[in-house]
Design a binder for these strands. Structure first.
Lengths: 277, 277
DNA sequence: TTAATTATTGCATATAAATGCATTTTTGCG
DNA sequence: CGCAAAAATGCATTTATATGCAATAATTAA
């Protein structure tokens, strides 16, 4: 009899505890704790509702709203009518590649489209100018293109008639190109009709030069592998130089800029025998 | 007697809960959530119909129309007579990769993050689930990752601590992955700790199967090269098969779906010894 | 410790937003 | 042209929010 009573008491006690816990557990919470609770809840449920929080924390909706406003102004969540939702991550889309002066580059590469013919084997280096070029390759061109640039491969993979071969290797992250011995080995085995090389810097005396050593030797290999070498760049690259040599001016067959081929800024280059488009 | 009554009450309560859940699940949705739902639906189905949404969300068509107008004015969709369609992306940007049911995939791959450790050598196949996985790899993870998927490489090239190696070869255009002997050769020389394989189809009897022959042999090589084989996919891939076999269920170490590991739909798989996350 | 100061909280009230309904206008289609 | 479906509009109702104010709690200075 007493035992039964005791058991009943214990059960009742437990129920009471739960009751108290539920209703007063958060009663003496500091604001900071409350904010933490709200943020946790937000992550768990993807959203928080003002009325639910008020109930759960045993506070007025006003207070919750003030909390949410505060957290909103700290950009920790986004307050909406009725509650709050997670801040939408500013997509920071990797795949959005911003191309500086795209219009100028379009102008440059459009001139070079005349160099393309069906059944050519083509090698393309990286660089935003070459990327613009890839975009503008006519849909009916049938050709084989080798590249070691991720964005250019992405672009060309949408082309219906291009056989695309990606040259693998270790990725150089910022430039989104592969580099290293693997690349050299593959490139050196290609027999290409034409290659399109982006240029960091070009000058009459130094020829093509690059910032990075690794890129410079890959480009060397490209030139070796191709019958015809074309480089496209804007005129601000003219008469500049970088640490690592790629090739002499003589080894370039054609250069393409936005300038008129007769422009005097190109005089020196024309004299050295390179064809200017 | 009282006990029986109590039990009855509990059962009734449960049924009532389920009832309420089904019919009011979307009832207390915040506007922001609703908009998110509409946008997800739009991506999944390419379109949304006003009446369907009104029905699905248990709201008047007026409200749905107001939502669609709002989203339209934000340029997030294009309202048309009867509903709304996706905004036609202005320049068919190749680099925008639409991922169907991205939220669900996030849920799946989040579970698999626990399999990652510093200094691992990892191979990743293509597929949108793996792409979502790549997005969520913590910034402080230091590892070496091999992949032959262009989008995944693009994504990982943004990661500060991953050594990324792209496996080159002929591009399979629609899937944006490289295939062929070049890929097999490279993969077969890798000694990886773990590989993450996307799945077209999986069944208890047939194991992993693929639509394309070429992809299937690449995946075979991946499995050979890895100590541990993990496959992540949504439950709709379960109990389906494709023409080309990749491997038996036994060869998989871990599978990850959005389901609870104890879900009965996974019973058969669990029995065959594969670990379910 | 006490008193003054400040911050927090809840309530009342006014304002604004969201939603559904009735009515009119527009649209697509035969 | 006419009809039915869809959309827009105005309005009423509900619900959420902002704001001033008073009560309370926490903090600081003396």
């Amino acid at each position: 009899m007493i035992l039964q009573f005791l058991r009943l008491f214990l059960i009742w006690n437990e129920i009471f505890d739960i009751f108290v816990m539920n209703f007063n557990f958060y009663k003496n919470m500091l604001k900071a704790e409350r904010h933490k609770y709200i943020m946790t809840k937000l992550i768990e449920d993807q959203k928080v509702v003002t009325t639910d929080l008020a109930l759960a924390l045993d506070l007025s909706e006003d207070t919750i709203r003030r909390d949410l406003n505060e957290l909103d102004s700290k950009k920790l969540l986004e307050k909406v009518y009725g509650g709050a939702v997670q801040v939408k991550e500013k997509s920071s889309n990797v795949f959005d590649i911003a191309i500086a002066a795209e219009e100028q580059k379009k102008q440059i590469v459009t001139k070079a489209l005349s160099l393309l013919h069906d059944d050519q084997v083509i090698i393309m280096s990286g660089g935003s100018t070459n990327l613009v070029f890839a975009k503008l390759i006519p849909a009916d061109l049938k050709a084989t293109i080798y590249t070691y640039s991720l964005p250019i491969a992405m672009q060309l993979s949408q082309h219906p008639n291009i056989d695309l071969i990606f040259i693998g290797g270790k990725m150089q992250k910022n430039a989104m190109v592969t580099i290293g011995m693997d690349v050299i080995q593959v490139v050196s085995k290609i027999k290409a009709d034409i290659c399109f090389i982006g240029a960091s810097s070009i000058s009459v005396k130094q020829g093509l030069t690059e910032v990075g050593y690794e890129i410079s030797i890959v480009k060397k290999a490209m030139i070796e592998a191709s019958d015809r070498v074309v480089s496209m760049f804007s005129s601000d690259k003219l008469n500049t130089k970088m640490p690592h040599s790629v090739c002499d001016l003589k080894q370039l067959d054609t250069i393409v800029t936005e300038l008129d081929p007769e422009d005097e800024r190109l005089d020196e280059y024309r004299k050295s025998g390179v064809f200017i488009l």
